[in-house]
Amino acid sequence: MTLNAKLLLLLLGCLVISGQVAAENSTGRKVFGQWCSACHMDSPFAPGTIQLKQTHGPEYAVIQNRADLTDAFIRLLVRQGRAGMPKFRRTEISDAELDSLVKYLVKSQ
């Protein structure tokens, strides 16, 4: 295989991976929009944002802007709930959708 062919394959591989990431982010964004944003959007009326601002400070209020969210933490919160936030069942957010949501929130740092 020539160098050019190898580079082309590498490029195609990168495109496929970035396409997958984009698709996952798109699904994750959709899941966020469907299930999370009503409470956690950047709004003075969003209950989750109000709560986090009070308990953790303004820099932690909007979860999409946070850099400290981990895979395990997001999964725990979604499936177990916390404080005023109820848990979400598999019939609401499927395991696959939760994977995408985690990737979206962690990668949006």
Binding site: F45, P47, I50, A83
Partner: peptide, 16 residues
């Protein structure tokens, strides 16, 4: 227009 604005009341006392 649906929202969860009123759901803020769960935060009133801190643990919902």
């Amino acid at each position: 227009v649906p929202s969860l604005n009123e759901f803020g009341l769960v935060n009133w006392m801190g643990s919902g």
